[in-house]
């Protein structure tokens, strides 16, 4: 049990209304449609650690990222920031300052019409961490330096920088409010491999130096392996396996986790012949009944088709799978 977790999600669910426009529904008599992006998700993030959420498109990890930083309020359940409800925490600037976010797309995450120094200074000004112009500039300069850029880069515009450099600017902006908690939404997915290595190293250095807590969202298990202390594997809005990263990588239990690990092309296995699991990612609007993974699961039985599995704990890892519960997973 973590004493004072930085962030805790308690049975969080979130729906999006994806109904057709009102007039159209009047004519066709269609009911409202809801997309369940997040389904009963719970996790705890201890201070100073990295918790990663992994999954493919449509699994809900991006929605959780936005819920965790307070951009939306969950339809059901609670999100708690340092033992205080997130929504009330965000209403106080002193608390709101302590959380921030890094985004995936280095090209869309910086305002193309603003100079870099203004971009990085925005949180400083918004939270009045400094008011006199030379104080603000001083902070901007040291923030840029801490991410490997120079003070002179401040007068330039974003389009003058490469993808990796823009991501550094994004990190500098996120650090400008002196946060304790950072939500990182696929921060390196749009970057080349060698640039990714630079950014991941930078992020780990900063975490050590500043004692940051990360919620790290990614679809790349190898990156997650490098960054995460604990991780959760998501499928169609649910966490299907959750626990210490080492334990999960050493012995993945949920069939989907195994599928993911197996599907990743691995450098160290040149020319491997493999039998990939078939099936498509189902649409989150009409998920299959019972366990959402059952159509693609090699271990699915009747119960899986009808009943959603609850979480069972095995060796500090929580798994939502009937086969694991029934010890059928071999």
């Amino acid at each position: 049990m973590v004493e004072r977790p930085t962030l805790e999600a308690i049975a969080v669910s979130h729906f999006f209304d994806v109904s057709r426009p009102f007039l159209q529904r009047v004519f066709t008599g269609e009911p409202r449609r809801r997309l369940r992006a997040v389904d009963d998700v719970s996790f705890v993030i201890a201070p100073g650690t990295t918790f990663a959420l992994v999954g493919e498109s449509g699994c809900g990890k991006s929605t959780i990222a936005r819920l965790a930083v307070g951009l939306y309020e969950p339809s059901n359940g609670d999100i708690v920031f340092e033992n205080q409800a997130l929504s009330s925490a965000r209403a106080q600037p002193a608390m709101r300052r302590r959380m921030n976010m890094i985004f995936q797309d280095p090209y869309a995450s910086l305002n193309p019409r603003w100079r870099v120094s203004d971009i990085v200074a925005e949180p400083i000004r918004a939270f009045r961490l400094a008011t006199r112009p030379n104080e603000v500039q001083g902070r901007v300069g040291s923030l840029l330096a801490s991410v490997g850029l120079t003070v002179r880069d401040g007068i330039k515009y974003p389009h003058e920088f490469s993808g990796g450099q823009r991501q550094r600017i994004s990190i500098a902006r996120a650090l400008a409010s002196e946060p304790d908690f950072l939500v990182c939404d696929e921060p390196t997915s749009a970057l080349d491999v060698s640039v990714q290595a630079q950014i991941l190293n930078l992020m780990r250095d900063l975490q050590q130096r500043l004692g940051l807590t990360y919620l790290f969202i990614s679809h790349n298990l190898a990156v997650v392996r490098h960054m995460a202390d604990r991780l959760g594997v998501m499928y169609l809005g649910r966490i299907v396996e959750q626990g210490p990263a080492e334990a999960i990588f050493r012995r993945p239990r949920h069939p989907y986790t195994r599928l993911l690990l197996d599907a990743i092309p691995d450098l160290e296995q040149v020319g491997r012949a493999r039998t990939p699991v078939g099936g498509e990612l189902p649409s989150p609007i009409a998920p299959p009944p019972g366990c959402p993974f059952h159509p693609r699961c090699p271990l699915a039985n009747e119960r899986c088709r009808m009943e959603k599995p609850a979480h069972v704990t095995a060796d500090s890892v929580q798994v939502a799978c009937h086969a694991v519960e029934e010890a059928r997973d071999g």
């Binding site: 936005r66 307070g70 709101r96 300052r97 921030n100 994004s170």
Partner: peptide
């Protein structure tokens, strides 16, 4: 979104 996160 970055601006919204810090409460602008």
């Amino acid at each position: 979104m970055a601006a919204r996160v810090i409460g602008v």
